[in-house]
Design a protein around this nucleic acid. Structure first.
Length: 115
DNA sequence: GAGATGACGGGCT
DNA sequence: AAGCCCGCCATCT
């Protein structure tokens, strides 16, 4: 990404970011939810790919996105997963003894939020 | 243009 | 309940 096309295309990335930005503090969504919200319920992996490309200093609450098991999928930098957990706990999200989030309680439903 | 990658999801064992 | 495998999709090399 160094040629033309990194800031002029409303790519999937932007849409993903836009959805994630709507997630209120203290709530979480799964990659699949974000994908479904974009009209591509099968693009969950692509969503993760988009978030991976996020640069530091952005206004996207990426930490509110977890996998369908309610766990943090990050395994990259050793600190990122811990950071995500700290950010969520700071917002009131509780983790069980298995470092897992109860999606039945914290899962945010965009359709209920209205658009 | 083709092959490989990845912050996933669902189903089966 | 937890783990393993396969399939999807957008992007990268």
């Amino acid at each position: 990404m160094s040629k033309s096309g990194e800031m002029n295309e409303p790519s999937f990335y932007e849409r993903v970011y836009d959805v994630v930005r709507r997630v209120p503090p203290g709530w979480v969504v799964t990659y699949g939810q974000v994908a479904a919200c974009l009209g591509a319920p099968r693009s969950s992996r692509a969503v993760g790919y988009a978030l991976r490309a996020l640069a530091a200093g952005n206004d996207v609450p990426w930490h509110r996105v977890v996998n369908h098991r309610g766990q943090i999928s990050l395994r990259y930098p050793t600190e990122s997963p811990m950071l995500q957990r700290l950010l969520l706990e700071d917002e009131g999200v509780r983790f069980d003894t298995q470092s897992r989030i109860d999606l039945t309680t914290y899962r945010w439903h965009p359709e209920e939020a209205g658009t």
